[in-house]
Design a protein around this nucleic acid. Structure first.
Lengths: 163, 163
DNA sequence: GCTGAAAAGCGCGCGCC
DNA sequence: GGCGCGCGCTTTTCAGC
């Protein structure tokens, strides 16, 4: 279940697939030093093992009129054991891109993407109206410095840490 | 540059592409009510227009031994106008998945993904050692409620908001 | 488990509607 | 702008190393 089953070639292959999800097996093979069918066999193995979770297309949010990113720190009353109205709302609301239950002062950290400040205001009002939400702190993103999407980082396979 | 050039079919096509970045043109056509070549023409147009930014593979972070997600709220001294050592570090460090310059109390919100608490501690030490960083507040994710990756939400094309 | 070739399926461009 | 056909490439399988 860990990366014991992943060798160096697998990691390079995953990295190449992360960089271009539609690369052909031949191109991937050239990148990792294998032939097409070998790449195919490895990809299928990784898909079955659940290492490859899927393939997606990165859409420019600005072209969709969704230029506004904000992070919300949410305080809720109920513990994380019972998924209350807030979590249901999170799953139902497409403008909520991410939501993590966190330790510390806040209950959840939420990433939202909307088109206008008015839309953000309306969304915030919906969140605040939920019965288990008692506090929201909003941080509007002025600029996105970095935004990766692969799900895990593969640029550094070996960890050169002094353990 | 806005979504004026995107019609309803484009939005459905983008949604289908987000759900499966390797879907065939025929399958996409069936989903949106078009034939393969028509889908192909639209995809090429969307790629040229920059609406489609690229394709990627979603890798299971747990399989890579990266089970620990944390959000860092960073306080820096220099304004966002001049990209200081912190932003350089952000770009160079693969374990930093996201970084946004935000308004409010904090300067940046950063999303990191690491394998162990020890690794997080070492990464935090590196961040704190940067000359322009004067404060870091860490929130460790106990559970991920939601994590989308497409870059923009397409589930709700029409905004049923009482404006 | 990787390599090669061979078959089935698909992406891709053209011409027509 | 979308549809149908055809070529070339890619995916996928199979046998050999």
């Amino acid at each position: 279940m860990t990366n014991e089953t992943l060798d160096e070639v697998d990691l390079r292959l995953l990295q190449a697939l992360q960089a271009d999800g539609r690369a052909t097996h031949a191109a991937l093979g050239k990148a990792v030093g294998l032939t097409g069918p070998s790449v195919y066999a490895r990809i299928k193995r990784l898909e079955r093992a659940g290492v490859i979770r899927g393939y997606t297309t990165i859409v420019d949010a600005g072209a969709l009129g969704q230029d506004l990113v904000a992070y919300l720190r949410i305080g809720t009353k109920a513990g994380p054991d019972e998924a209350g109205p807030f979590e249901e709302f999170v799953h139902a609301e497409p403008r909520i891109l991410e939501c993590h239950d966190v330790d510390g002062e806040d209950s959840y950290i939420v990433k939202v993407r909307v088109g206008t400040p008015q839309e953000l205001r309306a969304l915030l009002a919906q969140v605040r109206a939920l019965p288990d939400v008692y506090r929201t702190i909003t941080s509007i993103a002025l600029e996105t410095i970095k935004e990766t999407r692969g799900g895990g980082h593969l640029a550094d396979p070996a960890t050169p840490e002094d353990d």
